[in-house]
């Protein structure tokens, strides 16, 4: 057992979507989950109960013994936010590739054309990235990008500010300029369930200020974005994320991804990673 991998919390279901016992995969192993009397449960293949947390509309579990609580997002609790369960998308790629793509802004004009980005607004200015040792998380701040349609709630093009946070190896939280409330952050997360090291189930979740859009409009917007990402994620070679330098060529715009890869290596998180050039 590799505790550096197993002692983390992983999303395995959207709570509102659990209607009966069901099987899924976590780190390549079969697990069963369900809900009884309003409380969710998870069992491994031997029938042993695994620990659970119900948070952010999702059910979380761990095959190991997590040495800390599941992360929190205090901002998401503020009143007036609408909490959006986006659903799930299965993607044939390493869970780490899915997270890294979420941390990337330079692809917006080419993959999310005329929505999250548009030529000629392609330049990525320098931003700040660091590993916050006290909480052991990767943070990127002061990320700015011009967006034609930053959110369902945006009326036109704006320069959006982003903060990215990686609080767990397969999860990322994005804090993003809220179009109707410029002083607040919208929160968009990517929770990734590693089915195997080359196959994942992605559960986006959002906490937005948006009094206009219907729930299904907000879900559709985010699903469209992620479907565009999937066309990339299933066509990267190799499927695993290379952690050693040499196999891929980063630039300054990729500082977040560089920090993410370094951090994964530092904490020994190698599931879905490629360590030597193939």
């Amino acid at each position: 057992m590799n505790t550096a991998i197993e002692n983390h919390w992983y999303p395995v279901a959207m709570i509102s979507g659990i209607d009966g016992p069901r099987e899924t995969l976590l780190l390549g192993k079969k697990i069963t989950l369900g809900r009884k009397d309003g409380t969710c449960w998870v069992k491994d293949a031997t029938g042993k109960a695994l620990p659970t947390v119900e948070r952010f509309g999702h059910l979380w579990t761990s095959p190991g013994q997590p040495n800390r609580d599941l992360f929190t997002i205090p901002e998401a609790d503020s009143p007036g936010r609408r909490l959006v369960d986006v659903g799930s998308v299965k993607v044939k790629c390493s869970p780490l590739r899915a997270v890294e793509n979420f941390l990337d802004i330079a692809h917006f004009p080419f993959v999310h054309t005329d929505i999250l980005g548009a030529e000629p607004h392609t330049e990525v200015d320098r931003y700040d990235v660091k590993i916050r040792e006290e909480v052991d998380e990767v943070w990127a701040t002061k990320v700015k990008f011009y967006q034609p349609q930053a959110a369902k709630s945006a009326a036109g093009g704006i320069t959006t500010e982003y903060m990215y946070r990686v609080p767990a190896p397969t999860c990322s939280v994005l804090y993003k300029t809220c179009p109707p409330r410029p002083g607040e952050w919208d929160i968009i997360t990517l929770f990734v369930q590693p089915l195997t090291d080359e196959w994942c189930e992605v559960w986006p979740w959002m906490a937005l200020y948006d009094d206009e859009s219907t729930m299904s409009e907000m879900v559709s917007f985010q699903q469209l974005i992620f479907m565009q990402d999937r066309s990339i994620l299933e066509n990267q070679i190799p499927r695993k994320l290379p952690l050693d330098p040499g196999m891929e060529v980063p630039t300054q715009a990729d500082m977040t991804s560089v920090a993410y890869r370094r951090w994964l290596k530092k904490i020994g998180y190698t599931y879905g990673a490629q360590l030597v050039a193939a």
Binding site: F110, Q236, I237, P242, M247
Partner: peptide, 25 residues
């Protein structure tokens, strides 16, 4: 394969006398 992030260049597009990667252009 684009050397930047491994994306298939066959998904890219021709612009002028260049082949551009669809991921980051």
């Amino acid at each position: 394969r684009c050397p930047h992030r491994g994306m298939r260049l066959s998904h890219g597009f021709v612009r002028g006398n260049t082949l551009a990667c669809i991921y980051h252009g």
